[in-house]
Design a protein around this nucleic acid. Sequence first.
DNA 1: TTGTAGGCGTTATCAT
DNA 2: ATGATAACGCCTACAA
Lengths: 342, 342
Amino acid sequence: MPPRMIDVARRANVALSTVSYAINGQRAVSEETRRRIRQAMDELGYQPNALARGLASKHTNILALLFPTPERGLGVTEMEFVVGAADAAREHGYHLVLSPSELRNVRDLEQLTGQGLIDGALVMEVRIDDDRVQLLEQAGVPFSMIGRTSDPGRIDYADIDFEQTTRDAVGHLVELGHRCIGFLNHSPSAFSVGYGPTVRASEGFRRAAATADVVHVERLCGDNAAAGQAAFHEMRAAQPDITALIVMNERAIVGVMDALDEIGWRVPDDLSIVSMVSSTRVTEMMRPKLTTLEPPSTQLGRLGIQMLLDQIDGGAGERAPVQELLPCRLVIGASSGPPPAR
Amino acid sequence: MPPRMIDVARRANVALSTVSYAINGQRAVSEETRRRIRQAMDELGYQPNALARGLASKHTNILALLFPTPERGLGVTEMEFVVGAADAAREHGYHLVLSPSELRNVRDLEQLTGQGLIDGALVMEVRIDDDRVQLLEQAGVPFSMIGRTSDPGRIDYADIDFEQTTRDAVGHLVELGHRCIGFLNHSPSAFSVGYGPTVRASEGFRRAAATADVVHVERLCGDNAAAGQAAFHEMRAAQPDITALIVMNERAIVGVMDALDEIGWRVPDDLSIVSMVSSTRVTEMMRPKLTTLEPPSTQLGRLGIQMLLDQIDGGAGERAPVQELLPCRLVIGASSGPPPAR
DNA sequence: TTGTAGGCGTTATCAT
DNA sequence: ATGATAACGCCTACAA
């Protein structure tokens, strides 16, 4: 039996409604009254009941974070999204509920939105063509995305700038003198379900390589060592002159290393490696420490929440959609250097 | 304007209360009536309003996950906790709010519990002496812990069995023939604030080594490569005969590798390494692939929620506290082998 | 087995 | 500037 608003009102000798107004500032309250109310609140240790407040006011101060658990599992980068989003939400006085909805289970999402529990949603791991997005639009739930669909229209999103990132990766290697560069992407299945990073990085790489007028080769590759190993051998068979490799597939990297051992190549002497869109937290643990294009994960999470709140607080007014692409940060490690003189 | 319960009632030609009872099964409803109600619900796409339900029934079906963001950052293991907890909560029809409360900010926690928003809390990253625990007890909020305080009393918890895990690590090495084993722990600061794993693994290691009658040496070590490198040199200075190293500090490992390079040692020929309480997801990326004692992270998360729900649903009846210690799984990699014949 | 009505703790619309 | 008082949508004795 925690104190209720009426208890505060009585103790401060004012009406219930006055307390309510004093708390959420919807109308003027005299300084003296406000003081008495505050005092009463402190003495009672009063805190407004979130449910009652929500029921009456039609907004709950609760946001949902929609994250599917992808086949490849969740890593450090995803954790950073989550932490960034959670922090940002808290700073704005919002709660964040974690909603591990599988993409297939549209039911779960309907349930979530139908309960009237959330004011909006932040959608993670958005696919090129994502059911959840349609559903949220229909449901009229405010939402924003980390990642984006093929045609985001007027939907707010924050995403990694894959175009820029691949260009930076290629640029770094070209500057070092490389003229034949490989790209090891995520799995064929990620590509075929339209996983955004896989698709966009693929396009970006081709374009960047073409622009730099560099010989290039790409492989889709399962997220495991064996696949990485096989893929590298294939790439080398296709392009024997390969001297550098961009990898957007952390777990395949070690397989590449194994492949290099087999042919007696060393990093970066015989092959430069750049790890794209992975956390330095992880790539620093590899030897040699990998040159990395590190995504602004925490910032993306924060930005996602920010966009969402702008949307909610901003009312239904016609705002321009906020759509931002953030670059990855190039962290030069010991895995990239000049090409060998073969 | 979503449909309300009264709409369902009218459409099914029954009283409002009958719908309510039909939904939450608090009293018998005839099969025919129930059928009509269900049909009406389907046709209207009705879903009970979570807030109204909570306000009236005094329980919200919302749980909180309390996770501080430790100095060393959050990794794969922590992510797995979270995913496990979120999944388990969803399966039981509960929502999970992520509450990134810093340990220092007891205010945030008070706010959370005072709002009447949550039915209970799962506390992550529990310290030997943790303010949050006291606060939750005072607040009368049901909660359980992943990890445990020095004296958990009757509080439910699930934790890693560090005693067993260190014993397994030492045992694995002793079986291979090692007689002088080092232990690289987390940072001095983690130890001094009473971070459970650091403290308990330290004790466990000493005991296991003593029992196995093995020469041993331990170092606390910052979570970074440089610290790991320095620490290994120190250990070797203290125990030149060291042939094996147990590490509970993922980020220090690469520093150890660097140190080994400096003295021309190889893994596992000159030194065996076992990584304790880290995800194989990470240790598989190292070369050689590390022998690992992998924590049952997802299971711990699930278990934490399970305990919490038992507590909540079980009512205030006197239950025996559920306190479980789970072992890590030994995954043998390529980093451990027989000691060198020096 | 079904219906009636009084809360749950706020917000917000009326007055005053 | 402040007070009363309907909602908000549901749950649950209590009555029938």
